[in-house]
């Protein structure tokens, strides 16, 4: 059974933002690797390490491939040439740049995904509702997160129904286009019809309500967490400034 952090969602997000901002500003490979290792250990604690690795790999593999192509394979500035053939020019500086950019992206992706895995979605919606954000925002986050699996399931059901009635899509671009049309038209039309029906019911019940309203779900919070959030928010700005100020002074 996966575990979620017994923390306020905003505490987790503020800590992650502070870590990502400071690590990006520092631009040190060992710090990035330490943060990645820390994220992995937290994911192991949450019993989500495999899921984190799978999701991160799906996002990072193409991004790393792109950074390697752009900086590692056709570097025009580096002096330590490792190989050159036609437009290809592989240099040590280019590979180092690609690796550092890859680590920067990895910290953002892994820390961000870890937040998603550690935060309970219902707590997140309740936290948005209880915050000073407009009441519409809480509804939109909650409705989207609950609609996502339902629409994905409906899309699969539509695909199966089309296959059952013998609507063959075929191969190649035309087959792809036909498959998109067969799935998306019923999906979009039914979803829009549902939304139109829902709006009348919501409007009849006084949505969006102005003024305070009672929430039955409480979000774990404490004075210590609020203090931690304030410190993390300050670190998002001050951490990078403290790291980068000496470099900027040298450049100036």
């Amino acid at each position: 059974m996966p575990r979620t952090a017994p923390l306020h969602p905003f505490t987790v997000l503020a800590l992650a933002a502070a870590v990502v901002a400071t690590t990006t500003a520092a631009g040190r490979w060992w710090l990035s690797c330490t943060v990645l290792l820390g994220c992995l250990l937290l994911a192991v604690w949450a019993r989500r390490a495999r899921r984190l690795a799978g999701l991160a790999a799906a996002i990072l593999a193409p991004a790393w491939g792109s950074q390697l192509l752009i900086h590692g394979m056709v570097d025009t500035a580096g002096s330590q040439v490792l190989a050159a053939a036609g437009p290809l020019r592989i240099t040590a500086e280019g590979l180092r740049l690609a690796a550092e950019l890859g680590l920067r992206t990895a910290v953002l992706v892994v820390a961000g995904l870890l937040c998603t895995l550690l935060i309970d979605r219902h707590d997140l919606v309740a936290a948005v509702d209880l915050s000073g954000a407009p009441p519409q925002l809480g509804y939109l986050v909650a409705a989207t997160l609950s609609l996502l699996p339902r629409l994905a399931q409906r899309q699969r059901a539509i695909g199966e129904a089309q296959a059952l009635r013998g609507a063959a899509a075929g191969a190649g671009p035309l087959g792809w286009w036909r498959r998109v049309r067969l799935r998306s038209v019923p999906l979009v039309l039914s979803a829009l019809q549902d939304a139109a029906d829902r709006s009348t019911h919501l409007a009849a019940r006084g949505f969006p309500a102005a003024g305070p309203h009672t929430r039955l779900r409480s979000v774990p919070d404490s004075a210590g967490q609020r203090r931690l959030r304030r410190i993390a928010m300050a670190c998002i700005v001050l951490g990078p400034l403290a790291v980068l100020a000496p470099t900027w002074m040298e450049l100036a």
């Binding site: 989207t144 829009l192 709006s199």
Partner: peptide, 10 residues
């Protein structure tokens, strides 16, 4: 407002 979540999910 009811249309937006549908759009996001789509």
């Amino acid at each position: 407002l009811t249309l937006i979540p549908v759009a996001l999910a789509l």
